[in-house]
Design a protein around this nucleic acid. Structure first.
Length: 484
RNA sequence: GGCGAAUUGGUCAAGCGGCUAAGACGCCGCCCUCUCACGGCGGAAACAAGGGUUCGAUUCCCUUAUUCGUCACCA
């Protein structure tokens, strides 16, 4: 049988890294086996719906390459794919009634006050309500009467207080919970919408989902879902619960912490493929030691049995490293297209921007890093003359002044400002004087850039600037040193 | 608090009864070098604790500790 997985988000905001990884794993599990990956929108909580959230989901899936085979925009014969639309077909109520007939569910007319009175105060500020099955004992006549009167109701699952329920997870093994721990959860809400718990089970079954892949937070409620499958007499799907992704403080990633949303990462200059690659490795590892994977390679290698059970910290530092690897591996044209906006922003002067792009390619991890690497181009920054002192080069302010003064006339005489020509000119001078290379090149680079480190050597910088600007900067350096 | 799960260096992680306990990021050092970066080489750094089982436990079992999750007419 063909594997079918689904990504079933609720449209409540941006997609954070955890959501994206769920989608990724669901996609990979299906595609690794040549199966189908489906998108279903779970919008049964009408109050929490955020406008535009569905569009973000589409956009993100498309951009990351997690292309769904079916979904609201791609009918595959199992539609509708949006739960609010499915509800209109009456499917949830129909199945709920089926459970009522079987004695596995019942109408409940309890109002808020009564429910509140059931609350038991527990430490840590948590209030826990265990429903007391009050309405289970209602007679058929009472139920009919209430319904006829139009009294608001919910439908609850009837879970016995005796015994225990076990379900099997591919990663975590068998998990057993005492039935007495399980509350009679609500299947159909007062507003007629199904709860997640119920819609999820009904949909996964009716949409032929073979592998239910979802976050770890559902692990402890899964026995309830198992009971639902059993009550219906349906075969339960293969469960794969995914370990959580946490922040550096080991707290579950929240949509609020800005930087953890996929869109924000892209805005911060990360490459889509790098993000996908990185999160694939958060909770899964291949058989060998490889770390760089394209999506196609992931599909090929992804064996879900190798997903780990323990939570993983989202490490932005390692993501940055990986992003740098992707940038280095890019062909120049693709890279330049992405880097250009950042270069344009940092440099207004008319210089060879491709040159700048080449220089920084191996020096950045994310694109915004470019800015500070080339901020000396438009204007010579203010710098301290201490910068002329370099222990290893054996330079200091005095020696630098000497060198710059001697070199200035030579540079003024020279017309060929290509890197090669400049380099041999300077080396000639070095040889003539019996200096070390750095003894000369360090002060020149300092004068020309005003920075401790630059993405290119002295002569390359001079080539970029051209004769006039170079002379100007060297003179400025001399003046600065003389003043001191 | 009940229930469930997890626990290998700072982080991601391999390991699936016998190993000097991989690898990667980060950190440190060296080399390369007209600075930085890239690249190359090397280093420091871990099996939560205590009991069992076993000839032998990081690997299996139990207890404790810690962390996380969950206990909604949210998903």
């Amino acid at each position: 049988m063909k594997i079918r997985t689904r990504y079933a988000p609720s449209p409540t905001g941006k997609m954070h890294v955890g959501n994206l990884r769920s989608a990724l794993y669901e996609f990979l599990i299906a595609k690794h086996e040549g199966g189908e990956f489906m998108l279903r929108i779970e919008d049964t909580d009408q109050e929490r719906i955020v406008e535009g959230a569905t569009e973000i989901i589409y956009r993100t899936l498309e951009k990351t390459g997690l292309i769904h085979d079916e979904g609201p925009d791609k009918d595959g014969g199992y539609g509708p794919y949006v739960q609010s639309e499915r509800m209109k077909t009456g499917i949830y109520l129909k199945y709920a009634k089926e459970l009522i007939d079987k004695g596995e569910a019942y109408y409940c007319f309890c109002d808020k006050e009564r429910l509140d009175s059931l609350k038991t105060e527990v430490v840590e500020g948590k209030e826990i309500t265990v429903y007391d099955k009050h309405c289970l004992s209602l007679s058929k006549e009472e139920v009919e009467k209430n319904l006829a009167e139009g009294k608001p109701y919910v439908i609850r699952q009837n879970i016995p207080n005796e015994g225990s329920t076990t379900f099997h997870d591919e990663l975590y093994g068998d998990i057993t919970v005492e039935n007495s721990e399980l509350d009679d959860m609500i299947l159909i809400k007062t507003d007629g919408y199904p709860t997640y718990n119920f819609a999820n089970v009904v949909d996964d079954h009716t949409m032929n989902i073979t592998h239910v892949v979802r976050g770890n937070e559902y692990l402890s409620s899964s026995p309830k879902y198992q009971r639902l499958y059993d009550a219906f007499g349906w075969e339960s799907p293969v469960y794969v619960h995914l370990p959580l992704i946490t922040d550096e403080n080991h707290k579950k990633l929240s949509k609020r912490s800005g930087h953890s949303s996929f869109e924000d990462l892209i805005e911060q200059g990360f490459v889509t493929e790098a993000v996908v690659n990185y999160i694939a490795l958060l909770g899964w590892s291949p058989e060998d030691n490889r770390e760089i994977f394209s999506l196609d390679e992931l599909i090929k290698e992804f064996d879900y049995h190798r997903i780990s059970k323990s939570p993983a910290v989202f490490d932005i530092v390692k993501l940055r490293w990986m992003n740098g690897e992707y940038i280095k591996a890019m062909d120049f044209d693709t890279y330049y297209e992405m880097a250009k906006p950042y270069i344009d922003e940092a440099v207004k002067t008319d210089v060879d921007k491709k040159k700048l792009a080449e220089w920084v390619k191996t020096r950045i991890e994310v694109f915004p890093d470019i800015k500070e690497l080339i901020d000396f181009v438009d204007e010579l920054p203010e710098y301290d003359i201490d910068m002329y002192t370099h222990k290893k080069m054996k330079t200091n302010a005095e020696s630098s002044l000497l060198v710059l003064k001697e070199i200035l006339p030579i540079l003024e005489e020279q017309d060929d400002y290509s890197n090669d020509a400049l380099y041999s000119t300077l080396l000639n001078y070095v040889e003539e004087k019996g200096y070390k290379n750095g003894f000369v090149l360090w002060p020149v680079r300092t004068a020309v850039s005003g920075k401790q480190m630059t993405p290119a050597g002295a002569t390359e910088l001079m080539e970029l600037f051209g004769k006039d600007e170079t002379i100007k900067r060297i003179k400025a350096g001399i003046a600065k040193l003389e003043r001191a």
